[in-house]
Amino acid sequence: MVVESSAIDVQDLSVDYHEYTRDKVFSFGKRQTIHALKNINFTLEKGEHVAIIGRNGSGKSTLLKCLAGLLRPASGTVVIDGRVIFLSGVDPGFDSELTGRENIRQLAPAYGVKKENIEQFTESVKQFTELGEAFERKYLGYSGGMKGKLGFGFISDLRSDILIIDETFGAGDREFKKKSKARMNAMVSEIPTLLMCSHGLSLVTSICERGLVMNEGELIFDGPIIEAVSHYEALTEDSIHWIEFPYQKKYISEEKLHFDFGEEFQIIENMRLVIFDNKLKQFILMEEFENLESFSCLRSDLPEHLDCIFKIQQFKHDKWYDASRYVRFTTEISS
């Protein structure tokens, strides 16, 4: 039974994959069943922004695909009230033989953009992606980054009742990533109901208020996002080689915050520092290290109360992972 205000209602959902494997040369093969999801239950109210977090292979993507109507459950039911758009990767179905413009013009009406708005929609995508004359070239010749820009520009301009996102970030250069993040935040603020999965804990914490933690196909936690992240971190503790937050000297003066990492700890290029406002429960800064021995930021970038959490993240396999345990600063000021 669906509650009136429910956007998504999931009851006892299980999903099995069936694989045919052949172990001999002359063999019809045998069917192997993989239990990807086991008895999932939750309800999403209209207007909620919810994150699904869990390790690789925990069943996050399977759950999202099932909710998007792309996978058949083995048992249980899902009822979804409203139109769903599922963002997974950055290719909504582009044709390699068409130009960027032609692709946008042809796909837009199929994704619900009204005829009278297609021109405006196309120009908006062109402007956002900054592809310039490449927008008029065949998609076939695009680089990976350009394809990502076009895809992200297109899908982030679509609107629906429910948005389901499966790790759709990371296209393009650093500047474009910043733009994408801003665009995604704007999109999320306009979308009534959001369900997303990402390994970027900072991202999900800044966007969602509720978190579902999955492990080995089961839903093991459903609650406020901060608690969900803690639950997930506790779950993954064994699999992460944590480093202690590596500063030797630190100070927060009237002008700036400074960490001196010293010689013992080498910050490598794919690491960044994350600062989290512990009172407002939101991320303030995610800065990739430029100077590999120390880090400074302006005091004005930090909140007045100074109750912040600092940690280091590392970029591996296209995702940011927490690499250090966090340290919490309060109102300590030194010079």
Partner: peptide, 21 residues
């Protein structure tokens, strides 16, 4: 409304003109 179960993935409700478009 989208109803998903083992037997079907069914879109229910009356499609309006924009759905038809």
């Amino acid at each position: 409304r989208l109803e998903i179960s083992e037997s079907t993935c069914l879109l229910t409700g009356k499609p309006d003109s924009s759905n038809k478009e």
